Simulated assay, not measured.
Amino acid sequence: MKPADLNEQYARFPEISRDEMQKFVNWIRAQPHMQNLLEEEALHFFHACKNSMEMSKQVLDTNLTVRTHCDDFFTNLDCERPELQRAMRTVSICPLPQTTSDGYRVIIGKLADTNASNFNFVDVMKLYCLIFDLWMYEDGIRPGHIIVIDLKGVTLGHVARIGIFQMKKFLFYLQEAAAIRLIGFHFINIVPFMDKILGLMTPFMKKELTSILYVHSNLEDFFKHVPQSILPKDYGGQEPECIEMRETFHRKLKDSRADMMEFEKRHQVNEKLRPGKAKNASDLFGIQGNFKKLDID
């Protein structure tokens, strides 16, 4: 597990002042409740926040706080754990090797096993976040990222296994704490009950996310956003099939197993040392009991 080259990243984004970045790193190291992140890791936040010092501080603190209190997605990141092994058999999560013409990175998620009884939303999202973290760590900062969800094989049985509170947590993280510039969120191979899936999401989405949410009734429309040529062969592209790309990344996860568990520890806060009032999960996400299970009958 090797971080992207710092000098190369600063060269690609000359608008980022390294002196300002150093001030940001120094601020992190002065926070008693934070771990000492690497400059390469801190750079993701500064870039995602468009070089705003105050916003970078806020988003970083939110990110580390979510990772500390959202044990659903961000703790026990040993890829050899049974629940993650099951998730690795259930879905294919594929970061693409090529970028769009604008330099955007693309990641695709789809079912590998369509048996709904094997689908656990929490474990799948934990695997998704784990892969995304490793991918970004090694890839460095980019002009933007595109998330693609392929719904082929998804049934109402899968939707019934999605907890509304867990969906709220993930969308909170994506909108308030993720260290990326999200350019597009695309659904392809949509299903007749798409309204049920959107019904899970839209109560927790801000207008900034809804404005980049795309639901494609055909792939030709999707290809206007993500060129077919950079996609896996599953979609008529030139890259290896999703199943092959998945196995390649799973091997990388296993090779980086110890590093990712160390990454987990470094990206948490110590609430006992936080200046002022300590935070907890309720401060971030509210009370779980406030949510009813979504009616999908």
Rank of each mutant, 00 (worst) to 15 (best):
N218Q: 14
G276E: 03
I296V: 15
I146A: 06
I162K: 01
E41C: 10
T155E: 03
E220W: 02
K126G: 00
E271W: 03
H186L: 07
L130M: 12
S282V: 15
V191Y: 05
D72C: 11
D71W: 05
E15F: 11
E80L: 12
C129P: 00
P143W: 08
A4T: 00
A258F: 06
R266K: 05
K272I: 07
M88D: 02
N51Y: 13
I28Q: 05
Q268F: 06
L43N: 12
A4K: 03
V91K: 01
V25P: 03
Q9S: 13
I146M: 07
F185V: 10
P227Y: 00
E244A: 12
P97F: 06
F223E: 01
I188A: 06
E39W: 04
R86M: 13
I108H: 00
K254V: 09
L294V: 14
N36I: 08
G289Y: 09
I230D: 03
I190G: 02
I164W: 03
Y214D: 01
A258I: 04
E138H: 02
K279A: 02
C129F: 01
S229H: 13
L253Q: 09
P95S: 03
K110M: 15
N63D: 15
C242A: 14
W27E: 04
H33C: 12
Q288M: 13
T202C: 12
T62Q: 11
N63Q: 11
D72T: 10
A278S: 15
K272N: 11
V191D: 02
C79S: 09
I108L: 07
L77I: 10
D295M: 13
K277Q: 11
A112L: 13
R266L: 01
F172M: 12
V159W: 05
K23C: 09
F170I: 15
R142Q: 15
L294P: 02
L127A: 08
D195C: 05
L111F: 11
A30T: 03
D139G: 10
V226H: 03
G236W: 02
R161M: 08
F187N: 05
N290M: 14
I93K: 00
I108Q: 04
K206L: 10
R29M: 08
D71A: 08
E271F: 04
I212G: 06
L60W: 01
R29P: 06
E244D: 06
F204M: 14
Q268R: 08
I141A: 02
L231H: 02
G153V: 15
H186E: 04
R86G: 07
L273N: 13
F285N: 05
H145Y: 15
L273T: 10
S17W: 02
R142C: 14
